[in-house]
Design a protein around this nucleic acid. Structure first.
Lengths: 337, 337
DNA sequence: ATGAAAGCGCTAACAA
DNA sequence: TTGTTAGCGCTTTCAT
């Protein structure tokens, strides 16, 4: 940067020997400007390096064209892909994304959303960790809110159908002959973890299976650390909160010499790209993350246009069966690996 | 959202039976306000759900407190960690991050940076893919710019020292007895790929090694697809642009039945968390990503305070040796795996 | 086709 | 301690 004050409209006008309105019209592509003046103003503006002041423009125009987005953690590959889908739609409509990361902290997320409320024209909360009371407060605020992977009244809602996903996972494991399942859970404030837990509990009971719940988290380390407990619990199959946890767990099992899927099957949610590259490749529930983002934009877009919120959308994930799941040894079969 | 117009300062003032300045003072924590008035105004503001208009506030204050950030791709785990470090520093100083993703497209990045220039008080370009001419134009603009992983005049510069890293990688491989190395490259517009390439070329020549360069990219798929060429080229060791590429390549080698590191050693740059969980665990160059972000903020912070840019910083990465590298078979030894 | 001026919502200097 | 008001940089109506 060359330093010095910011160049304003009036500076360009003075330098070009014309008025601010003319400059404004030229730079905003108004029709009724003579060709010469237009060219002259343009060249002066370029020479001076004029950039419109965003704040002033927005204040005058009364619209911000910015979508505030919160995610618990950008390092979780789930979110960047949602943001891609969201960003594509938003950008096409002339909106920017203002992305903030809460670090899985509900209080920080509250601070961020309050902050964003005064800077954005809408909010997209991805896997919000907000306490219900605070979420309600935000939803009651002046700008529209879409929740991704969390349900809410008075908001757009776009979710992965984790209940269906959990059912698919259990069906798959049941068909293979598993009866004793461990679930390595996710972050405490996670709505989607709650969804999975409840469904897993209900279904395992119905299906005559046993479910052991283990404290987990969202990262590879959480999975690695859960290894001993998983083994101690005597489950023949493990479901983890997400692929990162599963990969960490696989790594511990490998280091410990436990055969997968011979001694224990491992499967999880999300099917992020590296799931296919895990050893063994991970059976996982593929969700359409970019589609989730795209739909979030569609909802917002409708609402910003003055319509009511569209009906909540639930995207059904697809089970991708790979080599990390197989028949349990206890069924009397030899390890196929 | 409940709908209806936005509540302004004057609405609160009217409802509270006082003036705008009093309300403004209360809400901004000025001292000279009677306790009762303060409480009353606060409760009215809360009841009405007042949120300050960010644009107006910024226009008046003449400062945006927003740092515009561009990254080529949020799905590359390198960037979220840089953003964490950057965001921590920025937040502590009352700045927000406005994160945008260019999708590895130089033209899109140009559009984004021009856009951000009028909405942010500073820019941080992570691994910028801008053409030199366009980068120069941005640097010549009205707001300060920090480049992460790219050098530039008139800007703050914070880089990983890929030359040192490349040297460490080659020394490690040379010590193991490798002579014929393949480099699976990165995205075409990547400055850091250029750094690595040049250093690898120079050093291999000096060290009496051979270097074969293979077209790659930044994702697991790029690595997987590069498999056949890597094998065909007859190298005993492969260096890839980053860990994602390496993991994809490892996967192809596994599927093809090529022993690692028995038949071929694999190593790469970045040491993202999953590198430790790859099979075999990946020898990789650990860089301090969060530190990179923190330093980027320090540079910006100094500049925003009116100082000159600090000297460019180069962070030296550390080689983390794991099981994916070993002695080549050609040296007459048996595969230790 | 161009210019003058009002006013977006807010903060702060000045007045009371 | 509180109120009045100028003005941040911009767009746009209205006048010319």
């Amino acid at each position: 940067m060359t330093g010095g004050r910011r160049v304003r409209l009036v500076d360009v006008a003075r330098e070009a020997g014309t008025s601010v309105s003319t400059v404004s019209r030229v730079l905003n592509g108004s029709e009724q400007i003579s060709f010469e003046v237009s060219n002259h103003v343009r060249s002066v503006a370029a020479r001076l390096g004029y950039r419109a002041d965003g704040a002033a423009k927005e204040l005058k125009l009364g619209q911000v064209r910015t979508i505030g987005v919160t995610v618990p953690d950008l390092a979780n590959p789930f979110f960047p892909e949602v943001l891609k889908g969201l960003g594509a739609g938003a950008r096409a409509a002339g909106y920017r994304l203002l992305i903030s990361e809460s670090g899985e902290d509900p209080d920080e997320e509250l601070r961020l959303t309050e902050e964003l409320t005064s800077h954005a024209s809408a909010l997209v909360l991805c896997s919000s960790r907000l306490r219900p009371k605070h979420l309600a407060r935000i939803l009651d605020g002046p700008i529209p809110v879409v929740c991704v992977n969390r349900t809410a009244k008075q908001a757009g809602v776009v979710c992965v159908d984790y209940r269906s996903g959990s059912r698919q996972l259990l069906d798959h494991l049941a068909n293979l002959g598993h009866r004793r399942i461990a679930y390595v859970g996710g972050p405490p404030a996670s709505w989607s973890d709650g969804q999975r837990r409840r469904t897993l509990r209900t279904l395992t009971r119905k299906m005559g299976m046993e479910l052991a719940e283990i404290t987990g988290g969202w990262s590879g380390d959480h999975g690695y650390d859960a290894g001993p407990e998983v083994l101690g619990i005597g489950a023949t199959a493990v479901i983890t909160f997400n692929d990162l946890v599963a990969i960490g767990l696989l790594s511990w099992l490998h280091d410990t010499g436990v055969a997968v899927p011979g001694a224990v099957s491992v499967t999880s949610y999300d099917d992020i790209p590296v799931a296919a590259y895990a050893r063994p490749p991970l059976t996982s529930l593929r969700n359409q993350r970019a589609q989730l983002g795209r739909l979030a934009w569609d909802h917002l877009s409708a609402r910003l246009a003055g319509d009511q919120w569209p009906q909540p959308v639930m995207l059904t994930p697809t089970l991708i069966v790979r080599a990390s799941t197989g028949r349990p040894l206890e069924n009397g079969e030899a390890d196929p690996a």
